[in-house]
Amino acid sequence: MQLQDAARLALACLDLTSLNDGDTAADISTLCAKAQTPFGTVAAVCVWPRFVAQARAALPASIKVAAVADFPDGALDLPRALADIEAIAQAGGDEVDVVLPYKALVAGQRAEVAEFLAEVRHASRPLTLKVIIESGELASSELIREASRLALMAGADFIKTSTGKSPVSATPEAAAAMLQEIRSSGLAHAGFKASGGIRTVADAQVYLKLTAQTLGEGALNPQRLRFGASGLLNDVLAVLEGGARPVSAGSAY
């Protein structure tokens, strides 16, 4: 795939994100303005729940508004997750990115994690549900696969690599395992979201290729593939404008 083609796809599949502790209303206004480019719009903006109403008012309906729940620590705290989801829905959000209780999974609390995810899925309908498995905190490929399976069995629309707040974010190895679980699930609608450390179109190309190889070329669309990033848009625009591109800082692989 040519770099400009990859840039167009990355733009269409981008969840433009701002989840800094100090985010202000002005930051969200800037984010929403950036989401609408001369080359097209991003798929969604992703913000804290308290900014959902502002983002929804600032954006056309074609751009989804996503917000996070149980974020970023992924505690086994169902009331907190449900409160986040309710706030997002009430404010007009379209999508919720919820952190799977990955520490509980590592500790062997599989049944508790499965119950948490089932309750989250029930409470979040009809919002699009993305489950963040925090792959960089899962010590083995089998744990990554198990987290992916639990999320998919609970009805997740997407499984997502990372919060972007852990030392290791998205990696091709984790992505490959997650994509294989999506394929094995037989769920034709289920998608994959790569998040954390994806800063350049070259970084995104790795995940575009993996997705096409595992799920087929037909999955290269925002219904099946997303990129969660704040800085990726800068390189996408540089590529599409034909200008000099920033040197890749590299992903946290």
Results as ranks from 00 to 15, higher is better:
residue 6 A to T: 05
residue 7 A to E: 09
residue 10 A to C: 03
residue 10 A to T: 03
residue 12 A to S: 12
residue 13 C to T: 03
residue 15 D to H: 00
residue 17 T to E: 00
residue 21 D to I: 11
residue 21 D to E: 15
residue 24 T to P: 11
residue 25 A to Q: 15
residue 26 A to W: 09
residue 28 I to T: 08
residue 34 K to Q: 15
residue 39 F to E: 08
residue 40 G to I: 13
residue 43 A to S: 14
residue 43 A to Y: 05
residue 45 V to D: 09
residue 45 V to H: 12
residue 52 V to S: 14
residue 53 A to N: 02
residue 53 A to Q: 12
residue 54 Q to L: 14
residue 55 A to N: 03
residue 56 R to V: 07
residue 57 A to G: 13
residue 63 I to N: 11
residue 65 V to I: 09
residue 67 A to E: 03
residue 71 F to D: 04
residue 76 L to R: 01
residue 79 P to M: 01
residue 84 D to R: 01
residue 85 I to L: 05
residue 89 A to D: 12
residue 90 Q to L: 14
residue 92 G to K: 13
residue 98 V to D: 00
residue 99 V to M: 06
residue 100 L to Y: 05
residue 100 L to V: 04
residue 103 K to L: 11
residue 108 G to W: 04
residue 112 E to N: 10
residue 113 V to L: 07
residue 118 A to T: 12
residue 121 R to F: 06
residue 131 V to K: 02
residue 132 I to R: 00
residue 133 I to K: 00
residue 134 E to P: 12
residue 138 L to M: 06
residue 139 A to R: 15
residue 141 S to A: 15
residue 141 S to E: 15
residue 143 L to R: 14
residue 144 I to C: 08
residue 145 R to E: 15
residue 146 E to N: 08
residue 146 E to F: 04
residue 147 A to Y: 07
residue 148 S to H: 13
residue 155 G to P: 09
residue 155 G to H: 14
residue 158 F to C: 14
residue 159 I to L: 11
residue 161 T to E: 08
residue 162 S to K: 11
residue 168 V to N: 05
residue 173 E to C: 08
residue 182 I to C: 06
residue 188 A to N: 09
residue 195 S to Q: 00
residue 198 I to K: 07
residue 198 I to G: 04
residue 200 T to S: 15
residue 204 A to D: 01
residue 210 L to T: 10
residue 211 T to N: 02
residue 212 A to W: 10
residue 215 L to Y: 12
residue 224 R to H: 15
residue 226 R to Y: 02
residue 228 G to I: 00
residue 232 L to V: 06
residue 237 L to R: 03
residue 240 L to A: 06
residue 240 L to S: 01
residue 240 L to V: 01
residue 241 E to A: 14
residue 244 A to I: 14
residue 245 R to N: 10
residue 248 S to P: 10
residue 249 A to N: 04
residue 249 A to E: 10
